[in-house]
Design a protein around this nucleic acid. Structure first.
Length: 311
DNA sequence: AAACACCCCAACCGCCACAGT
DNA sequence: TACTGTGGCGGTTGGGGTGTT
């Protein structure tokens, strides 16, 4: 049962924000800081829902937000992180400074999922494809051609049409995908918190939250990446069992038994979900991912992967 | 030039976890 | 313990823009 809307919608502005509203919100937050979103609109003189204010700030007005022009590096990182984290956009965004979860989500939905589905169909090379098509010329045509053309000219059918398209894409993905699965798979039943990700040794972070049903095995989304046997992983958060709380990690040696239960589950449960025939490629993907992170690590001093995710 | 088809992305929605009472 | 308020997340929508026919 969902709770009531955060505020009465009556009399509140909706839709696109005006420059004036942006200014009001920005000035208020600059003066008083973030938080107290519910009361913020009133105090700031905005006829907006607090949620709307928060979203506008987080996704658009916040300083240091990068907009547009996802670089090839970011693109690649998104794909890799998504393969590990699934649709955990906020976590992925935390790994991409200046990018918002919404932007990454949109980018994934509009660019990457299509591209990957095309790759899955044995089409062109992804990079070639991307470079030759940005911003979406040839690709648009390609993707449009593989779409189900139930011609609907009625504008009311637009969204239905889109849904059909998306369903079609989802089907293609589920059939052809090589990199990820769309939905995380729960593999354990113990409670897990989103904020306790990637560093089991430090209960770092308290801002995030995790739904109990979000207990997931990331790896199960990556054709069984969940548990990579890596001998030397230079990040504290991973080395001791990875994201135990989120049911993800890497078996190193005997694993970490500080939380006993988790690795026991992982050893038994996760590995039993690993596709046995593709182990080398899984390790390769893990290694690639860590190489990428290493490269980043040399540029930016981070205490741990966990901390970077929680930035 | 007009109509149509499609894409992009800002914004909205519903749900959940957690904290406070 | 039960309830309520809040912040946050992921999924979805739809207006506007762009390309094609």
């Amino acid at each position: 049962m969902g709770r009531a809307p955060c505020c009465s919608k009556v009399g509140l502005h909706r839709g696109p924000w005006t420059p004036r509203e942006d200014t009001l919100l920005t000035k208020y937050i600059q003066a008083h800081g973030e938080g107290h979103w519910r009361s913020l609109p009133k105090k700031a003189g905005l006829l907006r829902c607090g949620k709307s204010c928060r979203l506008r700030w987080m996704n658009y007005l916040r300083p240091n937000i990068k907009r547009g022009n996802i670089t090839p590096d970011e693109d690649d990182l998104i794909i890799r992180l998504h393969s590990l984290l699934g649709n955990r956009w906020s976590l992925i965004a935390g790994r991409l400074p200046g990018r918002t979860d919404n932007e990454i989500k949109n980018y994934w939905n509009t660019h990457l999922s299509k591209r990957l589905s095309i790759i899955g169909q044995g089409s062109t090379d992804p990079d070639t494809d991307k470079k030759s098509t940005e911003p979406g010329h040839e690709l648009k045509r390609k993707t449009s051609k593989i779409k189900n053309k139930n011609s609907n000219t009625n504008k009311n059918n637009k969204s239905n049409n889109r849904k059909m398209k998306n369903k079609g894409m989802a089907n293609i993905q589920s059939e052809k995908q090589k990199v990820h699965l769309p939905k995380p798979t729960r593999i354990a039943s113990f409670p897990i918190r989103r904020n306790e990700s990637f560093d089991c040794s430090t209960n770092s972070g308290s801002s995030g939250q995790e739904r109990s049903e979000d207990v997931q095995c990331f790896g199960s989304k990556v054709e069984g990446i969940p548990w990579c046997h890596l001998e030397d992983v230079p990040w504290n958060g991973f080395k001791d069992g990875g994201d135990q709380e989120n049911g993800v990690g890497f078996l190193i040696g005997g694993g970490d038994h500080r939380h006993g239960l988790v690795n026991n589950v992982s050893d038994f449960d996760l590995q039993s979900h690993l596709p046995t025939g593709d182990h080398n490629s899984l390790e390769k993907l893990c290694e690639e991912y860590f190489e990428l992170l290493k490269a980043e690590e040399s540029q930016v001093e981070l205490d741990s992967f966990a901390e970077s995710l929680l930035l």
